[in-house]
Simulated scan of single mutants.
Amino acid sequence: MRAALELAARQDGEPLKAEAIALAQDIPHKFLEGILGDMRRGGLVTSRRGGQGGYRLARPADAITVADVIRTVDGPIMTVRGERPTHLAYTGPAAPLLPLWIAARAHVRAIVDVVTLADIAADALPDGVRALAEDPEAWVNP
């Protein structure tokens, strides 16, 4: 996510070298190369080789959501024991777990499907997202 945001913040048309992204975001270069490769294969970034090469977003930052980046780099938005909630089945007293997991996924998607890289880069989170984050209980780890 931080690499995508670094690219979003610097959408001036010039590609950004992986080394510059790694340094700016304190991400190990080798690890970052893997992430950038995932984002390139997923159509989120383009790359160009050579002295004037580097990476840039493949679409405008306001057309790339947080969910796009998560799905491209990490896979499904939410899993339970490595499975998508829709692939699970429970019986007996555990049966209500399935709608719980589906509801939790829907709640997360309601946020990450609407927040764009441009929103974050401009520190302009949607009001509903900002309100959730401003709730003091949101910061408590029980």
Rank of each mutant, 00 (worst) to 15 (best):
V45C: 06
L125V: 08
A124I: 10
W101F: 15
D123R: 09
A133Q: 11
A104Q: 15
F31Y: 10
D113L: 03
A24H: 00
P76G: 00
L5P: 07
L98H: 08
L44K: 11
A3E: 09
H29D: 07
G13D: 09
T116K: 06
R59K: 15
R71L: 01
L36A: 01
R59Q: 14
P15N: 10
N141C: 08
R41N: 10
G82K: 07
D127P: 04
A67T: 01
R59L: 06
T46Y: 02
T65M: 11
V114F: 02
V129L: 08
T65P: 10
A4H: 04
V45N: 02
L97V: 02
P93Q: 02
A4F: 00
L32S: 02
P142K: 01
A18V: 10
D38G: 00
W139R: 14
V114D: 06
I77W: 00
D68Q: 03
P93V: 07
V69P: 05
A122T: 12
D68A: 01
G54M: 13
E83F: 13
G37C: 03
A121S: 12
D127E: 15
D74P: 00
R10T: 02
L100E: 08
M1Y: 11
A121F: 14
R48C: 07
P15E: 05
R84T: 05
T65V: 07
P28C: 04
T86W: 04
A63V: 04
M78P: 01
M1C: 10
A94P: 00
A110N: 12
I21D: 02
D135W: 13
V108Q: 06
P126W: 14
I111N: 03
I77A: 03
A106P: 01
P136I: 12
A89D: 12
A24T: 03
E134Q: 12
G34L: 09
R48S: 15
P96L: 14
R105W: 02
V69Y: 03
T72H: 04
L5K: 14
P99S: 10
T116W: 13
A104M: 13
A95C: 01
R2F: 03
A104N: 06
Y55Q: 07
Y90F: 15
G37P: 03
R81T: 07
V114K: 13
A9V: 03
